[in-house]
Write a protein that binds this DNA or RNA. Structure first.
Lengths: 212, 212
DNA sequence: GTCTATACTGAGATAGAC
DNA sequence: GTCTATCTCAGTATAGAC
């Protein structure tokens, strides 16, 4: 059958998301998919390449959405800077939307950004959209140097990855409080938080004495 | 020799930090340490318990520092709310300090927070300091409900973890810009960013229509 | 109490028959 | 295209030497 490939991809997506990439064995995947072990190596080569195909299959639409939103925003701004909140929604909305309907994939995506999982794969698939977003943010946030903005993008990426993975630290156990659920609510809060952080003035060298 | 245990811990710390927990084999560790494979199981039981001991050995001083700083801040505030930047420095400073002198451990710590690596271990070692910080932040930020603050703490944790791990995404390759180096500079920028984010008003439900 | 030698199970990967 | 058999290396467990 020619959809052996599809069955493998479906099973792998589910299991990688649920248990993580490292903790999922190829033998577990083939048991779920009902195929032979060697079929994975025939169709994908290695476990890593299987992950790569998976990211491509589900990650490409996410990035396409983000780029389309960016295009629309920049067209509407007619050469002026795009409002910060709009840029954040364009970058964060498409992946956050998946948290509800496809939590396994969202979790996997979070791992990719945050875990240092397969850095080469991440760069290849996300470089275009990150570069475009960086350029747009640079125009919206002229008070930051490119280096400062790059650093803040890392802060932002870390926060997003953590949320996509779904409470890597169970907030309730750690703090006693129950954070809001629902990806739309979380998205709004995340945008509010990040826009506050990105707008904050840079803590320049100041060569400040140690307190005093 | 009785320092077989120490040699194992030292080698494990280095290798876990460099390559990650999952990617480091016990056989690699014993080769570095110059001990026998079974020595690990004699002294630590399993690979996971070895990690636990490691976190305890190096993580305990970090948390002790944080708690001491918190104590000092709250004593100085005499019942009033502690300034936000001071709280952030108390929480972020101790781990960030390690980035320079012991990058392997910083990276490991970042993985613990962010990767979902051994959630039980993380909770056990960090719950006290997180709970204390949460309570102090709640008094400093009365505009946030406990749930909203818990969510923002997750954003903050994600950003911190990402930075501790050391450019999980190589910012230069992704954006073209070179972010500031030096853990003190990064700490200042992180505090500026997070205080801006935490102070931002909550994006309450608003029941807003879909744009329009 | 401390360590060595060795064996067991399950992982990813590969060669070659069908 | 698919499957069987097999390879190497992982984490783990235990028996027994010092």
């Amino acid at each position: 059958m020619i959809d052996t490939r599809q069955k493998i991809l479906d099973a792998a997506e589910r299991l990688f998301g649920e248990q993580g990439y490292g903790a999922t064995s190829l033998r577990h995947i083939i048991a779920e998919a009902g195929v032979n072990l060697a079929a994975i190596h025939y169709h994908f080569g290695t476990k890593e390449e299987l992950l790569d195909q998976l990211i491509m299959r589900k990650g490409a639409p996410v990035n396409a959405e983000r780029l389309a939103l960016l295009d629309a925003l920049e067209a509407r701004a007619q050469g002026k800077a795009v409002p910060l909140e709009k840029l954040l929604e364009a970058f964060l909305g498409p992946p956050m939307k998946r948290v509800g309907k496809s939590p396994e994939f969202a979790k996997l995506m979070g791992r990719m950004y945050g875990e240092g999982l397969m850095p080469g794969i991440v760069e290849r698939h996300f470089q275009t959209v990150v570069k475009r977003s960086f350029a747009a943010l640079a125009r919206t946030l002229p008070h930051l140097t490119p280096g400062e903005l790059a650093l803040r993008l890392q802060f932002m990426t870390g926060a997003m990855a953590h949320i996509l993975m779904g409470k890597a630290l169970d907030a309730k156990a750690m703090t006693g409080a129950t954070p809001p659920r629902g990806s739309q609510t979380v998205l709004r809060e995340l945008v509010a938080f990040l826009s506050g952080g990105l707008r904050a003035p840079a803590a320049r060298k100041g060569r400040r004495r140690i307190d005093k």
